[in-house]
Amino acid sequence: MRALILSDIHANKPALDAVIDHAYMDGARYGAVFSLGDALGYGPHPREVLEVLRGLNAQCLLGNHDLGLLQLVDGQRTATVGTGTQVLVWQIGRLSERDLRFVRTWKDVIEEPHLGARLRHGSPLSLNEYTDLNAARRSFREWGGTLALVGHTHVPAAFATLQGTDAEWMRHQPLAIPEIKSSIRYPVPPKARVILNPGSIGQPRDGDPRAAYGVYDTERRCFEVFRVPYDVDQTQRDLRASDLPRALADRLGRGQ
């Protein structure tokens, strides 16, 4: 099975469109499409991104921004000062009841038997936890699975430890891709337990402004991360026209 792995789209439709065009070129097919959370937040195209995800029949996870938006709608969270919350309030005004019903169907965690994987936004243990070295070690100790797919950091990476170890032996491999290349492959080592992160489509934070996505192939036990250029200028123009903080537009060009 080949699965298309999307994450951290952050309401950036030009980036998502470029990724979908690239992922499906030459008639490529996937057994499933997953969105690892934070389809919303930060960007100017919340309604449009949700429409694309519906069209893909994607299985969607809640990210912290998606959850925060629902909490604002339900009065469980106050609209405090802060860029992230400001964007969510703005996005709520542009979403229909149908859109909100769709987001309410998203799960905190997916256990996917065809992949043999746990899918979650932050770490195998928590929607909100950033998977760094310490979090990965804790996950390997407390979570009994062999494969996890996560997002949240906006940086493509792989963490691996050997089955049966206490998780103190661990390898962290950033999946950075030189500008002259469009992808990098990570073969999952035999008998290893791994946590894989495809990076962010809509707001990369590794200094590379190209949109990032992943494909996991269960037969080959291979994770491939792709980087795709998109019309950053269009997203920046739309952000500035929305009167949201200028820094949101500026950072896209820097991949930060």
Results as ranks from 00 to 15, higher is better:
M1R: 11
A3C: 14
L4Q: 10
S7Q: 09
I9G: 00
H10S: 07
H10T: 06
A15T: 08
L16I: 01
A18W: 09
V19K: 06
I20D: 05
A23E: 05
Y24P: 01
Y24N: 01
D26K: 12
D26R: 13
G27F: 12
A28G: 07
A32P: 01
A32R: 15
S35M: 00
D38R: 00
Y42G: 05
G43S: 10
P46Y: 04
R47H: 15
V49E: 02
V52L: 01
L53E: 01
R54E: 12
G55D: 05
L56H: 02
A58R: 06
A58W: 02
Q59E: 13
C60W: 00
D74R: 11
Q76K: 15
T78E: 15
A79W: 02
V81H: 13
Q86A: 13
L88R: 09
W90A: 04
W90Y: 13
D99C: 00
L100E: 01
R101D: 13
F102Y: 15
W106R: 02
I110N: 06
P113L: 11
H114P: 00
L115K: 04
G116C: 09
G116W: 06
R120H: 00
G122C: 06
S123Y: 04
S123H: 04
Y130N: 07
R141M: 12
G144V: 03
G144C: 05
A157Q: 15
A160F: 04
Q163W: 01
D166L: 13
E168N: 12
E168P: 00
M170K: 02
H172A: 09
L175G: 09
I177A: 06
E179M: 12
E179S: 13
V194F: 10
I195S: 10
L196M: 07
N197P: 03
P198K: 05
P198R: 07
P198V: 08
G199Y: 09
G199P: 08
I201C: 03
G202Q: 06
G207A: 09
A211W: 08
A212T: 12
Y213A: 05
D217H: 09
E219F: 11
C222S: 13
E224V: 15
E224H: 01
E224L: 02
D231R: 11
D233R: 15
R240G: 02
L244I: 02
P245C: 04
A247L: 14
A249D: 01
R251P: 01
